[in-house]
Design a protein around this nucleic acid. Structure first.
Length: 231
DNA sequence: GCGACAG
DNA sequence: ATCTTGTCGC
């Protein structure tokens, strides 16, 4: 049961849920050493067909050391919430949890790290998708986004590994991190049970060849395929 | 009021 | 997110 009946239906209800859960985010780093052998990192992503009101989520488990796919799972359902900037979690989490639950059964164990497409702490109320999913699962979670959302950052050096603070005013809420020379940086933020430095280290470890982590690349390909095959 | 705005 | 061809470059 994923309790879609008690899922918020209005923006006001969603805001209240964020306000209530935000205090449960844990700052202490309980994530594994980046790239550690025997460690499992899970990539998560969602694809939509608004015309059919269908959502497809994918959860792909990778061996953090070899980046080989260990296991994968998908889930499809009805869109649970409209896209509202700042409330993305309410649109994506129901399907993501279903895919994660199925992945856990197939894996026979809990993942060591979750990698979300989007933000965690870098959020108007400091409680983006990665934070929300972290509180609900209790797992270490990081957010890796493709756009800076409403935040600003300074110049990021040209080399892989170079970064600049992602700022909300003067507060560092995440980091713009270059994973590939000559390519636009990604935007990393803390979700749950992980430090910002670790989140960046995990991102670099998971993205040796392309701009985005292998976890999200795999999840992106899988949820698109699941959506296509659901038609 | 208007525009910007993760996916 | 999604609608979409060719094209420049490694």
């Amino acid at each position: 049961m994923s309790g879609s009946q008690d899922w918020p239906r209005t923006e006001a209800e969603a805001l209240a849920v964020q306000d209530s859960l935000r205090t449960q985010v844990e700052e202490t780093d309980q994530s594994p050493a980046p790239g550690a052998a025997g460690t499992i990192a899970v990539g998560l992503d969602v694809a939509y067909d608004d015309a059919r009101d269908v959502v497809a989520a994918a959860a792909v488990a990778l061996d953090a050391a070899t980046l080989e796919v260990v296991e994968e799972a998908t889930a499809t359902g009805r869109v649970a919430f409209p896209y509202v900037p700042g409330l993305l979690a309410f649109r994506e989490i129901p399907a993501l949890r279903d895919a994660l639950d199925e992945l856990g059964r197939r894996l026979g164990r809990a993942p060591d790290l979750l990698v979300c497409d989007g933000y965690g702490r870098a959020h108007p109320r400091r409680f983006g998708l990665a934070s929300h999913l972290g509180v609900l699962t209790g797992l270490p979670v990081i957010g890796v986004a493709k756009n800076p959302f409403v935040f600003r950052h300074g110049v990021v050096g040209p080399d892989r590994g170079d970064s600049a603070a992602l700022l909300d005013g003067t507060e560092e809420v995440g980091r713009a991190l270059r994973t590939r020379r000559g390519v636009k940086p990604v935007f990393v933020s803390v979700g749950h049970r992980v430090s910002l430095d670790s989140a960046c280290a995990h991102t670099l470890s998971l993205a040796p060849d392309y701009r985005l982590p292998e976890t999200t690349r795999r999840a992106d390909a899988l949820c698109r395929r699941a959506l296509r095959e659901s038609a």
